[in-house]
């Protein structure tokens, strides 16, 4: 789909732009040991309401791609549009919320003050702040922990607070970089199903980096398989699983078929490495 394509089904409300659109995107880091190609010729379109997972071995550029969307890295070739804007303008528009691998909560602020941080920076009134803090803390099931400090909470609760912080200012796009990578599997399953419910309720677009195949298949409407050296997209898999997904969907044949395809895609990327 091109940037200029118009969704004809919308009547008069205007242009339905893709949320993320990358064309021939490339990013090369120059290091002391020479250039490292982190991304090479990435073409990808993410529509509004998609739940897109990026999966691949480490070094495949999935985090770099997410950081490029967030304007934390600058591409060296190709074009990237977020809501039709440059990544820099999208960032200045506060178009996305970013959830990092670590919770990155500021230890001198209570949980509610941490969630208030983006709201303070964006100049919301005290009343608006209170209302949004309450709503987002509710959304991630942290009500009752407003006055606690981050170091008084478990890792899973800290990561939930950081998700609440990313949701607080109501950006339509949520970028999540292995948010549950440091958590144990039980907590992770729980947070995954909560994330799905949250996505369903808020109708946000979510980009989710992971290296777990079940996590990617369970969560996504679209799975982007990537491979390293150079970092590139090897397969884009549309998932036909229903939006409503209980945890035991992971034992159904449909689920396993998609997981098998992801695994094949990852293997293809690896065989390339062995040839080299």
């Amino acid at each position: 789909m091109s940037v200029t394509s118009i969704n004809s089904s919308t009547t008069g409300t205007g242009v339905a732009l893709p949320v993320v659109e990358a064309e021939h995107l490339g990013l090369t880091f120059s290091t002391n040991d020479g250039d490292v190609v982190a991304l090479s010729d990435v073409n990808l379109t993410i529509e509004k309401g998609d739940f897109v997972s990026f999966i691949g071995p480490s070094g495949c550029g999935k985090t770099t791609f997410l950081r490029t969307i967030a304007d934390l890295e600058q591409p060296t070739s190709g074009t990237l549009r977020i809501n039709g804007q440059t990544p820099e303008n999208a960032r200045k528009d506060r178009a996305y919320g970013y959830v990092f691998q670590a919770p990155a909560l500021y230890p001198w602020r209570t949980i509610e003050k941490n969630i208030a941080l983006p709201l303070e920076i964006m100049g919301h009134s005290a009343q608006q702040q209170a209302e949004r803090i309450k709503r987002t803390m509710d959304l991630v099931n942290l009500t009752g922990f407003e006055k606690k400090y981050p170091w008084q909470l478990s890792g899973g609760m800290q990561q939930r607070a950081s998700i609440a912080r990313a949701l607080a200012f109501d950006a339509d796009l949520l970028l999540m970089d292995e948010p549950f990578g440091a958590l144990d599997e039980i907590v992770r399953d729980h947070l995954n199903s909560e994330l799905l419910k949250l996505w369903d309720r808020t109708k946000k677009t979510i980009c989710f980096v992971t290296h777990s195949i079940p996590e990617a298949v369970y969560l996504s409407t679209k799975i982007v398989v990537m491979s390293p050296r150079p970092g590139r997209v090897t397969d884009v898999i549309e998932s036909n699983l229903p939006r409503e997904r209980p945890l035991d969907i992971r034992e159904t044949p449909e689920f396993l078929a998609i997981a098998a395809r992801v695994r094949d895609g990852l293997r293809a990327g690896h065989s390339y490495e062995e040839v080299m």
Binding site: L72, F100, A102, E120
Partner: peptide, 20 residues
């Protein structure tokens, strides 16, 4: 990571200085 967070909020220099 804490600075990147400020950048994602498009926080200006003084906000980053005072709040982080």
């Amino acid at each position: 990571i804490e600075r990147d967070l400020m950048r994602t909020y498009a926080a200006n220099y003084w906000q980053t200085l005072l709040k982080l």
